[in-house]
């Protein structure tokens, strides 16, 4: 299989993608569209983790954002998730950002490593609950100056009409000197989604309140998004959102997820 020619960073991603497609022994989580990932397309995620032994590769997850009087910024946020233990997934991502003109305007915005641990399976009496801990390490021109650690909790309640998710995250010890586009002192979000099961399509909306490190006021944003299963191993997503405030900042996301398996070493 031939991989496309591109810059070194892009080649690295493409190589992983090509490997993922070509490796014999791949198999799939069958309904990835139902498992919300943060930012794909909503910022609020659900309390589901990917299956034990599964890998999920966020392929070309694009994000465009802009505001009145500001040039459009472009980012690609590739991420690999692994069902490392029962109810636990490990995610590693290297968000890349392009702002302004020229080749030098493209760079990494840190290295993102996170763990998501589901406490339970949702039942009639208990919502699905999960804990997350993540760290963004300084890397690239757009990354933070020091490591930022974020901890959070996630709850998902399923009903006949759809699902409701609540996320709450806090970044202890962060100061305004650590400001980057995505970092907040705290962030709380609520999302609702409805699944059209036979069409394997999910529509959702979220509202997020956060205290950015670089600002004193609480910032609000809202988004709409859709995820759809297009094959047994692949799902696509699109979303559009807006920060609520005078700046009128907007963002559009589009991407796809590919799931696969590489090996297993027995089960517990």
């Amino acid at each position: 299989m031939q991989c496309p020619r591109w810059s070194a960073t892009w080649r690295a991603h493409a190589a992983i993608l090509c490997t993922a497609i070509a490796v014999p022994g791949m198999a799939s989580a069958q309904t990835d569209y139902y498992n919300l990932d943060a930012g794909r397309p909503l910022r609020v995620e659900d309390a589901l983790v990917i299956e034990r032994h599964a890998f999920e590769w966020q392929v070309a997850p694009l994000r465009f954002s802009g505001a009145r009087g500001r040039k459009t910024a472009f980012a690609v946020e590739p991420e690999l998730a692994w069902g490392i233990m029962p109810r636990m997934q490990l995610e590693v991502g290297v968000p890349l950002r392009r702002e302004g003109e020229g080749r030098s305007a493209l760079g990494a915005a840190g290295v993102d490593v996170s763990l998501l641990y589901a406490l339970n399976a949702e039942t009639l009496s208990w919502p699905g609950l999960a804990l997350s801990v993540g760290a963004v390490a300084p890397a690239g021109p757009f990354g933070p100056e020091r490591m930022l650690v974020t901890v959070g909790g996630i709850a998902t309640r399923t009903t006949s009409a759809g699902r409701v998710h609540v996320n709450a995250h806090v970044t202890p010890g962060a100061t305004s000197r650590d400001a980057s586009d995505d970092a907040s002192r705290w962030r709380v979000g609520v999302a609702a989604d409805r699944t059209f099961a036979v069409q394997s399509t999910l529509l959702g909306a979220d509202v997020v309140a956060e205290q950015p490190l670089g600002a004193s006021r609480v910032q609000w944003s809202a988004a709409l998004g859709m995820r759809r299963q297009v094959g047994p191993r692949s799902a696509v997503d699109v979303g559009v959102g807006r920060r609520l405030g005078a700046q009128g900042e907007w963002f559009v996301t589009a991407g796809s997820a590919l799931s696969f398996g590489l090996f297993h070493r027995g089960l517990r």
Partner: peptide, 25 residues
């Protein structure tokens, strides 16, 4: 909203820790 989503509706007798495993590659 967090409270309404996360508050259990009945006594905690139905706590389940079952999880999914991937297809054999």
């Amino acid at each position: 909203a967090l409270a309404s989503v996360a508050t259990p509706t009945t006594a905690g007798a139905q706590w389940s820790r079952v999880y999914d495993t991937f297809y054999f590659p």
